[in-house]
């Protein structure tokens, strides 16, 4: 099956790696790539949610990019190093001002750390520390996206992204799901989507919606 050409700009190299040429990167794409390269130093991560569809051409914007993160070593050290590093690269946390506050207040209260470029609020990256089985699965089964040969992002599995969009259930979310499904129909496993949908506690027959 692999390698498989999805479009003239997207090639599935194998089940965990997509090669993507995107001629015009938006401010959002540049932000996602830059902040992900900092996060990646201390955390394994997977981008989930609306930005995955946007990365692959969905015609809408978003204010925030959802990251599920898992520290590579001790959480405390990872947070301390992350805050040192974001300072170096001209980012800031818009809601958890420093590492100590993040560790004492934000994380115990399950407040997700939000990172943005200095002097900006939008766009921002919302960091969720993995806690549920599906969070861990998002990271373990993540896909590597090589963009324009030399830049990288990791996204959660397409099937789980689509299923979660059904869980959220708004018009925008179903549109995101349809966009991803129709773009990647050759490599998406419908049974896996239905399985995730069931795990999320939904009684939805995805075949009613996932038509291209």
């Amino acid at each position: 099956m692999f390698p498989i050409r999805i479009t003239s700009d997207i090639i599935g190299l194998n089940s965990k790696h997509i090669d993507y040429s995107k001629k015009h990167l938006s401010i959002l794409d540049e932000f996602a790539i830059d902040i992900a390269s900092v996060i990646n130093k201390f955390f394994s991560y997977a981008i989930v949610g609306g930005y995955v569809s946007i990365l692959f051409g969905r015609s809408r914007g978003t204010e925030d990019i959802d990251f599920i993160i898992r520290p590579r070593n001790a959480l405390e050290n990872a947070i301390i190093y992350l805050f040192e590093e974001i300072e170096k690269y001209n980012f800031w946390s818009i809601n958890c001002s420093n590492a100590v506050y993040a560790l004492r207040e934000c994380i115990p209260s399950k407040i997700r750390i939000r990172l943005a470029r200095k002097n900006m609020v939008i766009p921002n990256a919302e960091l969720k520390i993995a806690e549920s089985k599906l969070d861990y699965e998002s990271i373990e089964k993540r896909l590597k996206i090589t963009i324009n040969k030399n830049r990288q992002l990791y996204i959660g599995p397409l099937e789980l992204n689509i299923a979660y969009k059904f869980y959220l259930g708004s018009q925008k979310d179903i549109e995101d799901a349809v966009h991803l499904f129709c773009l990647f129909k050759e490599i998406i496993n419908k049974n896996a989507i239905q399985n995730y949908v069931s795990q999320l506690g939904l009684k939805v027959n995805i075949n009613e919606f996932l038509k291209c």
């Binding site: 999805i6 479009t7 003239s8 700009d9 040429s21 995107k22 001629k23 015009h24 990167l25 938006s26 401010i27 959002l28 946007i54 692959f56 051409g57 969905r58 015609s59 809408r60 914007g61 939008i122 766009p123 549109e175 349809v178 966009h179 129709c182 773009l183 038509k211 291209c212």
Partner: peptide, 28 residues
């Protein structure tokens, strides 16, 4: 959404990503 996906599948990113960039950059 289905129409737009078909457009993306057929056209080079040179064409569609320019439109997407303009939309997103303007929003931000």
């Amino acid at each position: 959404v289905r129409f737009w996906v078909e457009y993306i599948r057929k056209m080079s990113s040179d064409i569609w990503s320019k439109q997407q960039k303009e939309l997103i950059d303007a929003m931000i």
